[in-house]
Design a protein around this nucleic acid. Structure first.
Lengths: 191, 191
DNA sequence: CTAATTTTTGACCTCAAGTTCAAGAACAAT
DNA sequence: ATTGTTCTTGAACTTGAGGTCAAAAATTAG
């Protein structure tokens, strides 16, 4: 009972995520969030408690979406090297197609809140660990399929690829597609 | 003539740089800068004009310091691979020895101001290009010395290494030394 | 010593961020 | 229709950021 919400909290979280992603945590004001979601400030506070809590939900949602997209992409037909390369290419392609590249919410958060917000860091780490696991599994599958050499240390490669992804999402801010493509080609050479 | 400054602007810039590096651009208030430099807010504004201008000087100074340290490190005796590996190791070692890792001021700036400050981006790009050039030269020297294969594309490797550096400076926030070391070893495997 | 010049200091100003709250609106149950 | 409950709205509050300014202090030239 009681008056029904006239917005969907999940949708609002998704819209908030987009805003945080584009403008950063500190750079996003309650007014921005109200505009992005179409919900009054008061209502947002009533529903989510605080800006930080809303951000937490947005981070979680980002992790879910990212995981799903990574998993889907890696598991399309092809060799491990092909799929991983295609995944990296896709990542920068999306970012470069935006009016202004915004990198990776997780990486952005790590840098912006790293020193001051341990819980945000844990959320970021959960996401990177999930991605690393997906990479590891895909490489192991490649080894079973015979398209990746048995000697390759799947976990080491996965960590390394994660590092490359993070780097790319920053380099997107300052470098153009050809440079980024060559970086990707160099990075997957070890597979 | 006139009253003499009772602080050294160069020193103040260096102190401001440390503060921006640790707390980020937006996260650093004029009051923080006054405390870090020991100079009154009014005096800082009198000397530097605005927070943004002071930040510009701090960025430049960071670039100079970084370049000098990179060049010095790469040119110590050893093979290209050894020196580059040592350089990467040193970078994360410094960062991990701090109470809280703060990454790379240039990378942090790229993410924080990427969308909104083209001039800061140009400064960042000047720095990364300088580093890439140093990597390229060191790899070419390795090829002349015979410790790097002639077939290696020095520029592609240099861009790739730059990307790895950027990635590492973010990963430092969430991962520990052994993982980072393995990433470095994987990254320099192509040399 | 006076004048001219430059720096320092700290009070002051404006504006927006982040949040709270009182009043009213929309529902379900009785 | 009334009650109890939950949601919405917009005003209002507090705090600190970023910056300005007038007055005092420190210097050199004459």
């Amino acid at each position: 009972m009681g008056r029904p919400k006239n917005f969907d909290p999940d949708v609002a979280v998704a819209q908030a995520m987009e805003t945080f992603w584009t403008k950063g945590y500190a750079g996003t004001s309650p007014a921005d969030l109200a505009e992005a979601t179409g919900v009054g400030k008061g209502s947002l506070y009533h529903t989510f408690g605080s800006k930080r809590e809303l951000f937490g939900k947005a981070l979680d949602r980002y992790g879910e979406g990212g995981s799903a997209m990574t998993e889907a992409f890696l598991n399309e037909p092809g060799t491990a090297k092909e799929r991983i390369r295609a995944y990296l290419m896709r990542l920068i392609e999306i970012d470069l197609s935006l009016p202004a590249p915004r990198g990776c919410l997780a990486a952005n958060t790590a840098l912006e809140l790293g020193a001051t917000d341990p819980e945000a860091m844990r959320a970021v780490q959960r996401m990177t660990d999930a991605t690393i696991r997906l990479f590891t599994e895909r490489i192991r599958k490649g080894q079973r399929d015979g398209d990746v050499a048995k000697e390759v240390d799947a976990e080491a490669q996965a960590h390394f690829l994660m590092n490359t992804v993070v780097g790319l999402r920053v380099m997107t801010q300052t470098h153009d597609a050809p440079v980024l493509h060559r970086i990707i080609d160099t990075a997957v050479a070890g597979l």
